[in-house]
Design a protein around this nucleic acid. Structure first.
Lengths: 199, 199, 199, 199
DNA sequence: GATGAATGAGCCTTCATTCAT
DNA sequence: TATGAATGAAGGCTCATTCAT
């Protein structure tokens, strides 16, 4: 019999995660302290460690929640459409939209997580893979129905697409430059579907 | 009358830079201490500061030297060729080659510099821009002679290309996965020049 | 439920303060390290910072405790007497006594605090003012009842008195020379009450 | 045979001393570096050590020059007068004047030299003694011709006088408060010659 | 369950002084 | 004589994590 109810535990868990999200967003991973997070969540420092094994786990928790959310959104947006180009454009637009709407979390992922040594094999990497595999799926389907060249390297395309968006979004993440999701999505879709060369 | 010859000073400068490169590569920027670097360079801690204003300057020095080298290499490789696809493929191949040959320095740049707040406006950013602008140049020339569609967004292509390579190279940087420079260059060139869709 | 009792916290606080007093007295402010203080107090370095915000705060804490003590003593000794000359002599004697008994703390105040840039407006300056204002009070009372000339500049007298004692005590503070509190108090009282000139 | 002429050496010596005076006045003893001083004197760091054994010697040199100057001034001003009260008032006025005119050097002496452990027995202390002994001399003469009480403790008076002036000048030294030399000299003279009590 | 006191490792930088050139 | 490169010691403070209460 737990000393507090499961509901209470879940509330706490969520509160800590929200507090961490806020603190990390404001100060970055290194800059935010456990004490900051505990204060925001209105609990003691020590209690954080009943719910999360380490500060890093907390970061992972925040990003997992984030990925879970954007994964559902992405699938929802992409599978509204049937044709491959429309799906691709929707995917690009949506992904850029994530950078715009959740700049701080994107920065967190790029700067603090993906570059870290324990990213490989982590739950975050798994979620990231699931997120990016939406592209793989629509490519495979498009190959199946003749929309896309059968020899297309889907994994290469995945790296191209997500690498490209991250790169162009980085300026936005750093506070400079505009990010026009719709227009960029259109251009990038055209570039990838038709190529840049004159036949 | 200087206390030591200019040659000796240059040697020292280079020795410190090499030591820093090694230390940063092994332990990362935060992980490497000035004491580590001084020990490797076989000098005293204090002397480091006669040649470099701060630890960060040292990092920048290391990366500047790196960029100066790969910039020359890139131009050399790219402008061997005349046709756009060949140039593009050479650029991709060469850039992937940098990740393969200088994994640690690439990691340093991606993880410790580009994500840092003082990257914007730094000399490193300038060098990076010069490096990536090689692509802009070959695209412009190719547009000029009808090889590439005139409405091609060169800057978008730049983000696509370098973002893509960074993304796909990251696995290699992190010690896993293979990176076949020649083959990947060929595939990526094809993808970007012709697009992935069937007309 | 606090992790430790308030009594324990107070004990710690006092222990740190005593350790700091000892370390500062032995080595001066700059010379004493936080590690020294922590070692004397038998705690970890970090814990010092839970009780005091900085090394300087610690110095101030030591001197505040000191001033609080000597202020009470001074008032007690001075107001034993009713007549002005007796009060003045008691004040002088007591103040000299402080230099004799707490040489190290006096040195600390004179050498490390009063000359520092953040002394002005500090809590220590306030305590010092309260301490020296005992003289102002007895002068004002003595003017009121006709013992002292009505045009006496009390603040000037304050500077004269405390400046004089500090000056003559400085030799003692520095380990040389004798300081005969009673005799010096008598002579100085006579000098200030009657002047040195023959009418 | 010296490699440079004695005149040149003396010029250098003076130039270094002036540079040190300026640097110390601007940044304090700790704050000014040998490099600062060498730069101001337009010589190399190392050469400073041909003329002065250590940074501290340099400080002492600066203050010796200072004391030599104010000693002559003081004697000149004081012995203009014949009567004791006039001499005393002149001495006080002049000494306050030094604080006003050479605030930085006074601060240097008070904060950095007199409180240091090697002050005792130093050449500076000797000069200080000679400076303050002007008072002893006029008191002795005044005792001799019946102007001052024969049992006056001249050394105590010395401490009182110089301690008092230093104390009241300290506020000025720290940039606050006014220092009216003439008026303060008058009041202080009256206080010390006649006392503050009504007979 | 909850608290928060306690731990302790870790490091850049300055600068007086020396001495090879 | 003059230079200035080279030395190397020294310490305040933060904070993730643990565990006594």
């Amino acid at each position: 019999m737990p000393a507090i109810s499961p509901e209470r535990m879940q509330d706490r868990y969520d509160a800590i995660l929200d507090a961490a999200k806020q603190a990390f967003a404001e100060k970055g991973f290194e800059g935010a302290s456990i004490a900051d997070i505990a204060r925001i969540a209105k609990i003691s420092d020590g209690l954080v460690y009943r719910y999360f094994k380490s500060k890093r786990e907390l970061l992972y928790g925040v990003l997992q929640k984030f990925y879970a959310r954007i994964l559902i959104d992405l699938e929802h947006e992409v599978f509204k459409h049937d044709k491959f180009p429309a799906r691709l454009e929707a995917l690009i637009k949506r992904h850029i939209g994530v950078f715009v709407a959740d700049t701080d979390l994107c920065r967190l992922f790029i700067a603090e997580v993906r570059t870290s040594s324990d990213y490989e094999g982590s739950a975050i990497q798994d979620l990231n893979r699931r997120y990016t595999s939406v592209l793989i799926r629509i490519v495979r389907e498009a190959v199946g129905n003749g929309e896309v060249k059968p020899d297309t390297n889907a994994k290469l395309l995945r790296d191209v697409l997500f690498g490209a968006i991250e790169h162009l979004a980085w300026r936005h993440v750093n506070g400079r430059g505009q990010l026009r999701a719709a227009q960029t999505a259109r251009e990038l879709t055209a570039m990838l579907t038709s190529g840049i060369c004159i036949d």
